[in-house]
């Protein structure tokens, strides 16, 4: 049974393998290119690990430059979410005068309930206001020393419209009601918060762009030194027929690995920062009755950071290669 199989096996390589192998090793073929990419990718990573101390320094610099805007960005996302939770309930707070009684409070509430642009009302009387403030503010002991309750009663009104002019009209109408001290419309400070957040977002973006350039320049400079160190090799490679892209490839991969390594380290830094901030943040979130869900660095974010880091590293290396590699010619 085995004998005829063997014969055919011997025959085959003798007839067909030779030209096939020739084909495989044909210079300039796709498989040859992929082989070279694979070899250079591994080799350039090996080189980075061979000079671990110097590489670690570069990685750390890149990591800090990426982690800083990344962390700010996550903080801002959290703050924005915190704002958007309030946005859903564009409430109006009516602060009553301090001497208004509970009966007057109820009468006012009843009157408001029948108002055409009011959806619902909620009364927080002076005692409730004090209680809430004591439990949440942490000034409980200090407040117990007071003889008089300094907090006014509040009627929280939810309008049944979101059109700003109608809400504004309602606000001015409400402030004319008897015994009303002041009316506060949440959207006003919310808009201010949004304004500040928008500004902070722009600043973070600017910072991010600047630091991204910084990353590219750091990698570019490091790659420039690598090019100088391998000058002899570059000359020899060019003389034995290395193309420009063959000569550039190790350095582009070096840049890529610097960027990806920096991205990994940046993600670790941000995760550490999140871990460090977890306690205070969740305490703060409790104050907002659990409406606040902490946005964290997701796996997709980390993937994007690696992608971005890799691109910046590659780009920096490319700039350096463009500038310095052509100047090295055999003389």
């Amino acid at each position: 049974m085995a004998a005829p199989k063997k014969v055919s096996k011997i025959k085959k390589p003798a007839k067909t393998n030779k030209p096939k192998r020739q084909k495989l090793s044909r210079p300039g073929s796709l498989s040859a290119l992929l082989r070279n990419h694979q070899r250079v990718a591994v080799d350039s990573l090996d080189r980075l690990f061979a000079t671990a101390a110097a590489s670690a320094l570069t990685w750390a610099m890149i990591a800090i430059a990426i982690a800083l805007p990344l962390f700010l960005f996550i903080v801002l996302q959290n703050l924005q979410q915190f704002g958007s939770n309030l946005d859903e309930t564009t409430q109006i707070s009516i602060y009553m005068e301090l001497d208004s009684s509970d009966a007057e409070l109820l009468a006012a509430q009843n009157a408001l309930n029948s108002h055409p642009t009011i959806l619902s009302t909620e009364v927080i009387n002076q005692a409730q206001a004090l209680e809430e403030f004591q439990s949440l503010s942490g000034f409980g002991d200090a407040l117990s020393g007071l003889t008089e309750n300094p907090l006014p009663a509040v009627i929280v009104v939810t309008p049944n419209t979101e059109i700003l002019e109608q809400v504004r009209a309602l606000v001015s109408e409400l402030s004319n009601i008897d015994k009303v001290d002041s009316v506060q419309y949440d959207l006003d400070w919310l808009q201010r918060l949004y304004g500040i957040l928008n500004l902070a977002q722009r600043l973070t973006m600017m910072l991010g762009v600047l630091l991204a350039f910084g990353v590219a320049l750091v990698v570019g400079n490091t790659v420039r030194l690598a090019i100088e160190n391998r000058r002899d090799e570059i000359v020899v490679v060019k003389l034995v027929g290395g193309t420009d892209s063959f000569v550039a490839r190790p350095f582009l991969y070096t840049g890529l690995w610097y960027g990806v390594g920096g991205g990994i380290l940046a993600s670790v830094l941000v995760l550490l920062a999140q871990f460090f901030m977890q306690g205070p943040v969740s305490a703060l979130a409790d104050l907002y009755n659990g409406e606040f869900v902490l946005i964290r660095l997701s796996l997709i974010d980390i993937f994007n950071v690696l992608l971005l880091g890799g691109f910046l590293g590659w780009f920096g290396a490319w700039l350096s290669v463009l500038r310095h590699l052509r100047a090295i010619e055999p003389r």
């Binding site: 300039g28 498989s31 193309t243």
Partner: peptide, 8 residues
Amino acid sequence: PLQIAGYD
């Protein structure tokens, strides 16, 4: 030179 020329 063979690496450059792409030999396996």
